[in-house]
Design a protein around this nucleic acid. Structure first.
Length: 251
DNA sequence: TGGTGTAAGGTGTCTTGACT
DNA sequence: AGTCAAGACACCTTACACCA
């Protein structure tokens, strides 16, 4: 959990990569259902409205966000050609992506789904994409005062795996503790693990955990130790201990 | 804009060994 | 014996750079 942050005026000249990606802890720990390009697009659009006060968001109608291919290319250090292609594909697929959270109710856990966007339109020939946030996601992105996760976009811009990005966000949401101890089901959900990964811990370790941990150590300079929590031989949970490496960390 | 080559990431499958 | 995790290998896909 982070301390409440005073709203500051948005600097329109700030590089996108220097802006913050803010989202509620509940959203951070939910299943996002996003691939890497979609994740980049969503995070960039969140960062574009970084620190904008709610009143100004209402006044400017900032539920709608524009992102150009040039900004995308600069932020993620890829070529313009790739940026055009990724933005177009991500905009196409984003409309059908859902956030999935699980709420505990007296009748047991209940899954809640809502869309990321009500509209995602790529303007061919002009090189920019326009997103309109879905109304249910807005409270998780704007006007946050407590229980939220915040990081600079540049801290994830170098990541090449969506799993690394998701693990980084989970670490960020537990940064106060320096420890992330999900049940195996919570971890599956948070990582958007595929069925084959869920069915077999070896797959989860090989395809999700180890590549993500390696990338975060190499590119973000984190110090990470992790172990499994077992019931007999069955893995039922995970225990990550993480901290910033003062020499190299971007955490 | 489209084609091509390369590197990295992702997946499937088989074998081996340890544990219940 | 059955189950589960680990390791190795091959193959496919994706991301990206480069060039015409």
């Amino acid at each position: 959990m982070k301390a409440p942050r005073a709203a500051v005026a948005l600097n329109p000249d700030a590089l996108l990569s220097d802006r913050n990606v803010n989202m509620s802890n509940a959203l951070t720990r939910a299943s996002h259902g996003l691939g890497l390009a979609e994740k980049r697009l969503i995070a960039s659009c969140i960062a574009k409205n970084d620190s904008m006060p709610m009143a100004e968001i209402h006044r400017k109608g900032a539920w709608t966000v524009r992102l150009s291919a040039a900004e995308y290319a600069e932020t993620f250090e890829i070529g313009l050609d790739s940026a055009y292609e990724q933005l177009q594909q991500a905009a196409d697929s984003l409309f059908n992506r859902y956030v999935r959270t699980v709420q505990e109710t007296p009748k047991g856990p209940k899954e809640i789904k809502f869309r990321w966007v009500g509209k995602a339109e790529y303007h061919k020939g002009e090189g920019w994409v326009e997103l309109h946030w879905w109304h249910e996601v807005v409270p998780h992105l704007f006007g946050l005062r407590q229980q939220f996760t915040s990081y600079k976009l540049k801290q994830t811009a170098a990541l090449r795996s969506a799993y690394s990005w998701r693990l980084y966000e989970c670490f960020k949401s537990w940064a106060g503790k320096g420890r992330y101890t999900p049940s195996i089901e919570e971890f599956h959900r948070a990582m958007d693990a595929k069925e084959s990964h869920r069915a077999n811990f070896k797959e989860l370790r090989r395809r999700v955990i180890e590549p993500a941990v390696t990338e975060l150590i190499e590119k973000n300079g984190l110090l990470i130790e992790w172990t499994t929590v077992n019931a007999g031989r069955k893995v039922v949970g995970l225990d990550f201990k993480f901290s910033a490496n003062p020499q190299t960390s971007l955490f």
